[in-house]
Design a protein around this nucleic acid. Structure first.
Lengths: 354, 354
DNA sequence: ACAGCCGTAGCAAGCGCTTTCTATGAGGGA
DNA sequence: TCCCTCATAGAAAGCGCTTGCTACGGCTGT
């Protein structure tokens, strides 16, 4: 029924070993032989049996990319960029050689699924894994991750973090690309402070995520530096990284006494919800309330008014992570790189009413 | 170095066969034996060798999801929904059993990559493949796809189309879920006509895609039914499914003589670009120009004004495709289902000025 | 002219698992 | 009491491929 290596060998009148070597192209094969084999492959429409070959060679061409939420462009952009660095052809080159199967796995932000996917990839003896997105700050989960990653690394899987802080005390991760969330949030807050804002609400992400904490810390650093550290608790609301969370949190912020003149959102999606809430309260942006986001996703420039935010070079980071995963690029010394975040000042922030 | 089935067997003092059976759970094993084996698995931290097991069983637990653009939430939402139906635990159930590895592959809209990914999945003997997104209308590519899919189906891979028109003359595809793009576009256009618009610009997607054609056809049907079929060519501009295409096309539309009073965009992302262009021309939405999108992506409701669009039940469709791929749900008779599109009238459309 | 090499190709031994077929022991019916 | 049956476990034959080692010519060097 299905064509095997042996069939190709028979048709090309060579041994299976030779066919294998032609296909893998790492052993000298005479040109005439090679041509004969290739022709046979073509004529029989032969497709290598991946499991068999992975078993025999003890390696596979699977590369996994873990994301928290595949419906969120934040991850989509990184994953897409990584995938194009990893994927076989289509990146311009010819047909032969390192055709990796780059696949993205959606954890939905769930720690169990994260671990499960890692196990599944371990099962498949994945060649590499790119883990994106902020980590959970639960020590148990961190330990479980570290253990799992160590095992993967042991088995020869190259591991790269992208947009995720490095794992402490672990040499399993070949390279970590972390965004400067803290610095970005600090600069964003400083921008607001310079405009004259003093009461700044902060709609934070879920409590137990590193990304959330770093951004919040950056924000508070700036506030503290300006001598404004009193109302931290009452001006911060936590919620998931989605629009409705931004809406609800902003409603709450606006209803508290001593109303804020600006709202900083955990990310651009949350900011969109915040904008809606501000408007539904009959307030104008930025005249009555300034709003800012984080990430600079493509839609942010199209918000009305355009969203002031912090740009994260998602595509570049993803591409770099892809290259690192493929071993096309050498990891930085120490394995850790911090990627700068750039403040994008646009129409949604202005001086508070005077 | 790495733990194998035999190691587990030795530790549990049973034969490898028994361990295998415990792990696959489809053969009677005494409870005491099972417990012993499970304990050994745990103690040794055993992880099944996927390739080996796929090779021996001639099946794998890989399920591929092909998308055109992973950075586009249109695909992200479908893929995410499909993936949660397919993925192992985390969907609430316990630990055992059908833990499939649902992975999404990003074709970037390139026909070659589409085919390449299909080959790669064929190599891995994927259990199922979900193909999303509109198809290319190139006969050569369609034929190549049909051939490739036939081979996959032959090898036992279940194939499901999601948001993609059925492949003619092929029984390789187990089920096709197609969106009613034509009907949606028709109703959207009718809405505009009822408001009194007569000169309606259409920013279409790339020429050679089924989605583009169907939406355009629906639009023109409605126009023709209203006796407005003269200016079709001059009122249509084609471009990719992205924001800048919407911007550029709308600029062009607005600069042509006999300016349009409404712009219909190929999808919501394009509509965002269209809105920006309208604004940059010093025109107001919807007072001067109405704008409408398609898909009803999450951000559309947050546009200002909120975007009139056509809702496609992406999550439902994706989930259903996932279930079909898993064989959890029986394919409809004939294998083809058309999914209705719902008109969402919001603030971005209104009657043209007087 | 002969030994030694290099360039190629084949042999055969697994890789780690699944699964068919067979073996064994404990009960139960006659 | 003996045989048959059911429940459970093991033996062993692959699944299709890779790769270390061996084999075989024809060349080169002396």
């Amino acid at each position: 029924m299905t064509v095997t290596l042996a069939d190709v060998a028979a048709r090309a009148r060579v041994s299976p070993a030779t066919v294998s070597r032609v296909l893998n192209g790492n052993y000298p094969v005479a040109t005439s032989t090679r041509d004969r084999v290739l022709r046979a492959v073509d004529e029989l429409d032969y497709v290598l049996n991946g499991p068999a070959s992975s078993l025999a060679a003890a390696t596979s061409d699977l590369v996994g990319i873990l994301v928290n939420d595949i419906a969120d462009p934040f991850f989509g952009i990184m994953a897409g960029a990584a995938q194009s660095e990893i994927g076989g052809p289509g990146d311009g080159s010819g047909r032969a050689g390192g055709e990796k199967l780059a696949v993205v796995c959606n954890t939905g932000g769930s720690p169990e699924r994260e671990l499960t996917y890692l196990t599944l990839l371990q099962r498949q003896r994945a060649a590499a894994v790119v883990v994106t997105g902020g980590a959970l700050e639960d020590p148990d989960h961190q330990a479980a991750m570290a253990a799992k990653l160590a095992k993967l690394a042991d088995a020869g899987t190259r591991i790269v973090f992208c947009g995720r802080p490095p794992l402490p005390d672990s040499d399993a991760v070949a390279a970590s690309l972390a965004f400067d969330n803290r610095g970005g949030a600090r600069r964003l807050t400083e921008h607001l402070l310079e405009l004259g804002h003093r009461r700044i609400g902060y709609v934070a992400g879920p409590l137990e995520r590193t990304t959330t904490r770093h951004r919040l810390e950056g924000h508070r650093e700036a506030m503290r530096a300006a001598g404004l550290s009193g109302d931290e608790e009452s001006l911060t609301v936590h919620g998931p990284y989605d629009r409705s969370s931004g809406y609800d949190a902003t409603c709450e912020l606006l209803s508290r006494e001593g109303t804020v003149t600006a709202v900083l959102a955990a990310n651009d999606t949350v900011a969109l919800g915040a904008c809606a809430a501000v408007r539904d309260h009959g307030l104008r942006i930025p005249e009555d309330v300034s709003v800012a986001g984080f990430d600079d996703l493509p839609f942010s420039v199209d918000a009305v008014p355009a969203l002031t935010t912090v740009r994260l070079p998602l595509a570049e980071a993803g591409a770099r992570a892809g290259r690192l995963a493929m071993g096309k690029e050498k990891p930085p010394a120490g394995g850790i790189t911090t990627i700068e975040a750039e403040l994008m000042v646009r129409g949604s922030t202005a001086a508070p009413r005077g």
